[in-house]
Design a protein around this nucleic acid. Structure first.
Length: 503
RNA sequence: GGGCCCAUAGCUCAGUCGGUAGAGCAGCGGCCUUUUAAGCCGUUGGUCGCGCGUUCGAGUCGCGCUGGGCCCA
């Protein structure tokens, strides 16, 4: 076998181009218009007939990657693409300046070229450049995936995302949509008076969420640092410091398994507002999601698999116990009784039931019976205190806290609290977490003494929330896997083959 | 952590009952000066993921490994 059969052929063509005295890797592209710009301006075939286009007397230079070549004897059609838009180039031997025809024979799919000539419309009505000059911008030495089916192999699509983006048009579209979602979210928050801030991604004590952190080491200070699992404790310090409304959009890192909903690094927006509470966060969330759906996706009703999700406010609100009763078809009264909760947990094979409190078991019952069924946006409220060490208790019931999680498409999308601002209470909650840790739960939170100190200086009543941006993009773009909305998802490295090891 | 599925040419995929490897696209050589997955003629290209085993004989059967996908905990 000749593994570089294709590459060798293209290397030969490269030498021939050089022999013609051409610069194959010029420093800048010759270009007067973008392809998208031309395609948009001259899209109307009735106004811009071949005659009117010729009447313009306009000569354009456009650059693009060659994605199709159709040879017709002494004329050739090619499609150039740039930024997801395409434009046809029409080469005729008689039209081309020297050494154009020779150059054209050395053109391969995947090459970047710029073409210069007047705009025209072909017999079949397609806007095209009647090429007088062609210039190489970059010679592709490797072949592209198959033009009709694109790149199908999921592993290769994730490992070589550039090939996925070139050959699968909807992938480029999804990631452009992601960019617009993030920018719309950011603009929405700024319009609400929130200030974007940046807090440490490397933290001496990982806090703000119950999750295993990644560890790293700073050499000069000879200290261990943790990649953050959440920015929460730093953002609250900023509210202590006098900021009224802050938000941060950035990466969190959790040292956990991979799934269609989990990537070890993921993007979260967290926001905190002095003086507000959970109800304010609900309203903000409803407005944010319906606005993004409308402005980016063009509708508040969007497809999710076989279903349609409505992002129209208000979203449904349901307490955790009510949700378990409703979706688990369980008598609501049973959830008021610890013995029954234990029995229900054992019935669905929750592990280590005897070591858990009834609040923890309610969380397990919720995960088992409810989470996947919450397709339409639903705020689940009234979480057990054991699961929520940073949240204020409910008025009149200190076993539950003023927290919601928002579920869409069967996934947790957001998590919000009326933030706990009593430093004495907070210290007690940390103590409980440390006991948990002592008992072997390495996801339990660690004490952050300076955070307690900041609370002792006074945190006003504060509403706070985190929204998972990757999952938001998933539900809005109808993507079944988080890997389809993260450009470079984490992949296990490929083990080199024996022959590669010898090299 | 457990279960199921996938891995064959650069890409997309066939490969029956175990009998010595196929197509389309791409590539290469021709024909063709308005094509749209252009068409037509010819043609190159394979460590069937890796290893071990069963067998006269393995892409195919078994075991293990690697990578990926899906489901469950």
């Amino acid at each position: 076998m000749q593994p570089n059969q294709y590459r060798d052929v293209r290397l030969e063509k490269l030498e021939k181009l050089k022999a013609l005295g051409l610069e194959v890797w010029p420093r800048k592209a010759q270009r007067t218009h973008g392809i998208a710009q031309l395609a948009e301006t001259y899209t109307d075939a009735e106004t811009w007939t071949n005659e009117t286009l010729e009447g313009l007397g306009l000569t354009v230079s456009v650059m693009g990657r060659v994605l199709a070549i159709r040879e017709m004897g002494k004329s050739v059609f090619a499609h150039l693409t740039e930024n997801g838009e395409k434009l046809q180039a029409f080469f005729r031997m008689n039209d081309l300046a020297e050494p154009g025809w020779e150059v054209l024979k050395l053109l391969d799919m995947g090459d970047f070229v710029s073409v210069t000539g007047p705009l025209m419309r072909t017999k079949t009505g397609e806007l095209s450049v009647r090429v007088k000059e062609v210039q190489f911008l970059s010679k592709a030495l490797l072949p592209l995936p198959e033009k009709w089916h694109g790149l199908q192999d999921k592993e290769q699509r994730y490992r070589q995302r550039y090939l996925d983006l070139i050959s699968n048009g909807e992938v480029l579209k999804t990631f452009r949509t992601r960019s617009r979602i993030v920018s719309t979210v950011r603009r929405f928050m700024e319009d609400q008076g929130y200030l974007e801030v940046e807090t440490p991604m490397m933290q001496p004590i990982p806090g703000g969420a119950t999750a295993r952190p990644f560890t790293t080491h700073h050499n000069a200070l000879d200290m261990d640092l943790y990649l953050r699992v959440a920015p929460e404790l730093y953002l609250k310090r900023l509210i202590v410091g006098g900021f009224e409304k802050v938000f941060e959009i950035n990466r969190n890192f959790r040292n956990e398994g991979l799934s269609v909903r989990h990537n070890p690094e993921f993007t979260m927006m967290e926001m905190y507002e002095a003086g507000s509470d959970l109800r304010d966060m609900m309203t903000l969330t409803e407005n944010l999601l319906s606005t993004v759906a409308r402005e980016v996706m063009g509708s508040e009703q969007l497809p999710w698999g076989e279903q349609v999700i409505s992002y129209a406010a208000p979203f449904r609100r349901l307490s955790m116990k009510d949700a378990i009763a409703e979706y688990g078809c369980i008598d609501r009264q049973l959830l008021e009784d610890e013995a029954h909760i234990r029995a229900l947990a054992k019935a669905v094979h929750v592990e280590q039931v005897d070591k858990k409190t009834d609040g923890m078991l309610l969380g397990d019952l919720f995960d088992h019976h409810v989470e996947k069924q919450l397709i339409q946006p639903t705020f689940i409220t009234d979480y057990p205190i054991e699961l929520s060490p940073l949240t204020k208790t409910l008025e009149g019931d200190d076993r539950f806290v003023d927290r919601f999680e928002l579920f869409i498409g069967g996934m947790e999308l957001a998590n919000a609290y009326s933030e706990l601002n009593d430093p004495i209470d907070q210290m007690g909650r940390f103590q409980a977490q440390m006991d948990e840790r002592e008992a072997g739960n390495d996801e339990a939170m660690q004490l952050d003494q300076d955070f307690i100190t900041s609370l002792e200086h006074g945190l006003p009543p504060t509403g706070g929330e985190g929204i998972g941006i990757d999952r938001l993009v998933m539900v809005l773009t109808n993507s079944a896997s988080i890997r389809d909305v993260i450009l470079f998802p984490l992949m296990r490295p490929m083990k080199p083959t024996e022959s590669e090891e010898k090299d």
